[in-house]
Simulated scan of single mutants.
Amino acid sequence: MIRLQRAALPADTAAQLEGFTRDIARTAESDRKDTAARLWSHSTVRRHVREGLLDALTDMAPGHQRCMYCGDGQGTDIDHFEPKSLAPLRTFDWLNHLLACSYCNSNQKRNRFPRADTDGSPLLLDPTLQDPLNHLRLVLPVCTYKSLTDQGAACLEVFGLNTRGVLVEGRRTAYGTAKQSVELWRIATDQGRHDKAAEVVRIAWNRPLADVLAAMFHQSGHPAADLLFDGEEETLGFLRDRALREAFLTAA
């Protein structure tokens, strides 16, 4: 997971969402769950509303339409961060919509929405509101995550970020290609091939599992970076280069 910026919706799509929310609010509280489910599955919503939502979410998503949870699978589903079965009034709330792959949405998350025992706040991370780097640390080079907070732990459990072997192996591959990217940027820049260097940056961020690249830059500035990158001193040197950091992080 990486930090994402929430996009603004087109005015007509936003107005449609508000109208459906009013329709749900006008029904009896006991009927709102069924009303929300019926409206969300209505053919008009599928044809007109969901298309606008998917377009906006796709523009926000990491890489080429990647899942906002695992960062690997293609984002095909509009996920309700707070499930509509638990919060029907948020069914058409733009701030409650994220892009997910079908596996994260239907196999992992489903209607699970853990809350803190202390204050009832959500334990899952919304990457448009919180920076996952403050809650999850990628252990390099094994590329499994360590939770730093209860929210990080909840995400690991709900989305299986460490137990889905394909994700862990994919992150290991992504780590190797990310190291190659920063080295290629250095070579291209030293040769004065600035268009080539810019292309390297663009491709690096558009690959699946861009969370690996984000974690590398984040950890390179950590006080314990020398330990975190033990045996990877050359990579750490690249990541600490001021010009390289500016080129990659301004494009993130």
Rank of each mutant, 00 (worst) to 15 (best):
residue 150 D to T: 11
residue 26 R to T: 10
residue 25 A to R: 11
residue 245 R to D: 04
residue 193 R to P: 01
residue 56 A to D: 10
residue 71 G to W: 02
residue 81 F to K: 06
residue 89 L to K: 05
residue 167 L to F: 15
residue 142 V to T: 15
residue 189 T to Y: 09
residue 163 T to K: 10
residue 177 T to I: 14
residue 227 L to F: 12
residue 122 P to A: 09
residue 87 A to R: 12
residue 132 P to N: 10
residue 46 R to C: 03
residue 182 V to W: 12
residue 179 K to H: 07
residue 152 G to M: 13
residue 12 D to K: 00
residue 175 Y to Q: 06
residue 173 T to C: 08
residue 168 V to F: 05
residue 2 I to P: 03
residue 13 T to A: 00
residue 51 E to H: 07
residue 221 G to D: 09
residue 191 Q to F: 04
residue 169 E to I: 07
residue 28 A to Q: 14
residue 43 S to H: 01
residue 69 Y to K: 04
residue 177 T to M: 11
residue 63 G to H: 10
residue 133 L to H: 04
residue 29 E to P: 02
residue 249 L to C: 11
residue 3 R to A: 12
residue 65 Q to P: 01
residue 176 G to F: 05
residue 99 L to V: 00
residue 194 H to E: 12
residue 68 M to E: 13
residue 74 Q to R: 02
residue 70 C to W: 02
residue 136 L to C: 09
residue 209 L to E: 14
residue 239 L to G: 05
residue 243 A to I: 06
residue 201 V to Y: 10
residue 61 A to L: 07
residue 95 L to C: 09
residue 121 S to L: 10
residue 147 S to F: 13
residue 197 A to L: 06
residue 189 T to A: 13
residue 79 D to V: 07
residue 106 S to L: 05
residue 37 A to L: 04
residue 168 V to N: 11
residue 1 M to Q: 01
residue 78 I to D: 11
residue 51 E to G: 14
residue 64 H to N: 14
residue 16 Q to Y: 00
residue 99 L to E: 04
residue 194 H to W: 05
residue 68 M to T: 07
residue 250 T to I: 08
residue 178 A to S: 15
residue 139 V to F: 02
residue 11 A to N: 00
residue 47 R to A: 11
residue 133 L to M: 09
residue 33 K to C: 03
residue 26 R to Y: 06
residue 179 K to E: 14
residue 90 R to T: 02
residue 247 A to C: 10
residue 31 D to S: 09
residue 210 A to M: 09
residue 161 L to P: 10
residue 105 N to M: 03
residue 149 T to Y: 13
residue 51 E to C: 03
residue 232 E to D: 15
residue 237 G to K: 02
residue 192 G to C: 03
residue 163 T to R: 12
residue 63 G to L: 01
residue 220 S to T: 05
residue 74 Q to A: 08
residue 171 R to E: 11
residue 97 H to M: 14
residue 206 N to I: 00
residue 218 H to G: 04
residue 208 P to F: 13
residue 57 L to V: 08
residue 183 E to H: 13
residue 25 A to V: 03
residue 45 V to Y: 00
residue 61 A to W: 10
residue 33 K to N: 12
residue 161 L to V: 06
residue 118 T to W: 03
residue 187 I to R: 14
residue 87 A to W: 01
residue 89 L to H: 08
residue 120 G to V: 02
residue 224 A to Y: 02
residue 147 S to M: 05
residue 130 Q to Y: 08
residue 76 T to A: 14
residue 170 G to L: 07
residue 140 L to S: 06
residue 239 L to K: 03
residue 100 A to G: 02
residue 205 W to A: 00
residue 223 P to K: 05
residue 251 A to I: 03
residue 18 E to S: 07
residue 223 P to I: 04
